[in-house]
Amino acid sequence: MSEAINFHYVVDGDDFTSAGEASVDIKRKLRQLGVDPAIIRRVSIAMYEGEVNMVIHAEGGTVDVNVYEDKIEMILSDEGPGIANVELAMKAGFSTAPDYVRSLGFGAGMGLPNMKSYTDGMEIDTKIGVGTTITMVVNLK
């Protein structure tokens, strides 16, 4: 029972219209697994924000969702520019997204703070010019 169920996604960074596809899919998968709907909502919103961020800032990346008996872990990795100032990026309303992103309905500077508020744990590992890995956990118990 302690073995995790893994779902792996490659997020395409070239095409904004596809941003969010992985999150829609994970929502469906978690429903099939019978996960509590309130938990599913938190996981899928956090992942969706992360997925959109990846497309906006990092030309895509990968997402791994590991479902354990007691928690769901999401690992979002990209090889983008990295986050220059994590503390600032965590501030509600701070955004480095270009203007065209706002015309698409995003870039309000709520992504990272929102990801933190919907999860029970979030770690950001980022290096300028190398990339960013964000690990988020939502507890099941």
């Binding site: 219209t17 999150s23 709907p37 909502r41 919103i45 969706y48 698409l104 309905g105």
Partner: peptide, 17 residues
């Protein structure tokens, strides 16, 4: 209710149930 027109509107609605 929205005046924005892209697939993320649909996906956002789905995320929020």
């Amino acid at each position: 209710l929205t005046g924005l027109l892209n697939p993320q509107v649909i996906r956002t609605a789905e995320m929020m149930d």
